[in-house]
């Protein structure tokens, strides 16, 4: 592993910050989509419970 090019020929700050940003975006997209799904599931469950209560 020590032979791997972490210094990126002097461009490490630019390369690694770009990689970190995009990996962060990937994680944020998964997290926010799953959070939205959980919220929608809760809203749908409440709406169905309200319907069941009315009938």
């Amino acid at each position: 592993m020590s032979d791997l090019n972490y210094s990126m020929g002097g461009y490490a700050a630019f390369v690694w910050s770009s990689v970190a940003l995009v990996l962060g975006l990937l994680v944020w997209n998964v997290w926010s989509a799953r959070r939205r799904l959980a919220q929608a599931m809760l809203r749908a469950r409440r709406a169905q419970q309200a319907r069941a209560g009315r009938s």
């Binding site: 919220q39 929608a40 809203r43 749908a44």
Partner: peptide, 14 residues
């Protein structure tokens, strides 16, 4: 797919 499921649930909750 994940976001679409959420959108469908919100729109079709009744």
């Amino acid at each position: 797919c994940t976001r679409l499921r959420a959108e469908v649930l919100v729109r079709e909750r009744q």
